[in-house]
């Protein structure tokens, strides 16, 4: 497979995954904002900005600081390189560059989602419609991903898997480092009651991380904090846990590169060990956060190595796609 096309496919997967993660995060925080005693909606949406690492960028200039302004910035703003609409644009541009490798149904899914995204951008998004827009965007993601399951050419599925796994790692780490800061350390003898704010914040994090199904099937459920942390960090059965995705990176790299001794492979294997060593059992969330910060840095380095050693992309398809690889998503100095 041409490295250029591998690069396009990789960024297609990352952009798609980013759109989906952003939508799920917004939905969870929006639901939280409707509960009694919730902090103001705009404050909750600022949390979303922090998770997607756009808080500073949003505050630049003379933007209104309202909930709706934040919502539009995250969902549709042209100037936000990671807005959901821009993510769909990146999916399309990268897909277009590799169009001959995509199936007709995959391309249709990409293109139609993109076209509707443009319409939504021009219509604007009201606070009351946020769930509608998010539902639509998530359906677009599922449609494209379902169509992508049919891709068989060369190593496409493995490159898609690599991009998706690295984006999931990145998002889960951001989610943990932002939302854990608002939670008290876990006291196994005094779990939060079901009607408490702490309980709802944990559930919001679980929903944002697409862990609700895992949570429902976990047992015993009363150990909310410990179970949630395990699901996010070390559980090999949850599709978005750190360890699952670090292992997916190892597996994908082995097939893409055809060797098992590259620097990226070594970094990915080391990352798996580092994740498994995160001290989630103690319940001290400040210690967990410190360990996560280390993993964040290692993940950035891993992204850099993957691109440098195996994808070797000079530029993604468009300037907007290039800009979408924000400095916080990629390590400083990453070759893009």
């Amino acid at each position: 497979m041409l490295t250029r096309l591998a690069g396009n496919t990789y960024w297609l997967a990352r952009s798609l995954e980013r759109a989906e993660n952003t939508c799920r995060l917004l939905r969870a925080l929006n639901r939280q904002s409707l509960l009694p005693g919730a902090v103001h909606t705009s404050a909750l949406f600022r949390t979303a900005l922090a998770v997607v690492d756009e808080l500073e960028a949003f505050q630049v200039g003379t933007r209104e600081q309202t909930a709706r302004a934040i919502l539009e910035y995250i969902l549709i703003a042209p100037e936000n390189h990671s807005s959901v609409v821009n993510c769909f644009a990146n999916v399309r541009e990268n897909g277009r560059s590799a169009r001959h490798m995509l199936t007709a149904s995959m391309w249709e899914a990409v293109n139609r989602t993109y076209l509707r995204a443009q319409e939504i951008r021009s219509e604007g998004v009201r606070l009351d419609e946020v769930d509608e827009v998010i539902d639509w965007a998530l359906q677009g993601c599922y449609w494209i991903r379902g169509a992508a399951d049919e891709l068989r050419r060369d190593g496409l599925p493995h490159v898609l898997s690599l991009g998706q796994a690295l984006e999931r790692l990145d998002f889960t780490l951001r989610l943990l480092s932002t939302l854990l800061a608002d939670l008290p350390s876990i006291d196994p003898d005094n779990p939060p009651t079901m009607s408490s704010g702490e309980y709802r914040r944990w559930l919001a994090m679980i929903e944002a991380g697409d862990m609700s199904e895992s949570w429902r099937s976990s047992s015993p459920r009363r150990r909310l904090g410990q179970t949630a942390l395990a699901m996010f960090v070390t559980d090999p059965h949850t599709t978005r846990s750190l360890v699952t995705n670090a292992r997916r990176v190892v597996a994908a790299l082995e097939i893409i590169s055809g060797r098992d001794d590259s620097a990226a492979m070594a970094a990915a294997s080391a990352l798996v060990h580092q994740i498994l060593a995160i001290p989630i059992g103690d319940g001290d969330l400040s210690v967990v956060q410190t360990a996560i910060t280390e993993v964040v840095i290692r993940t950035w380095e891993l992204s850099d190595l993957c691109i440098r050693d195996h994808l070797s992309i000079a530029q993604p398809a468009t300037a907007s796609a290039s800009a979408s690889q924000s400095s916080s998503t990629l390590p400083p100095g990453a070759q893009v």
Binding site: L34, T41, L127, V130
Partner: peptide
């Protein structure tokens, strides 16, 4: 209700 009358819950 939360979906269609979100404003009321706020």
């Amino acid at each position: 209700m939360r979906r269609v009358m979100a404003r009321s819950f706020r």
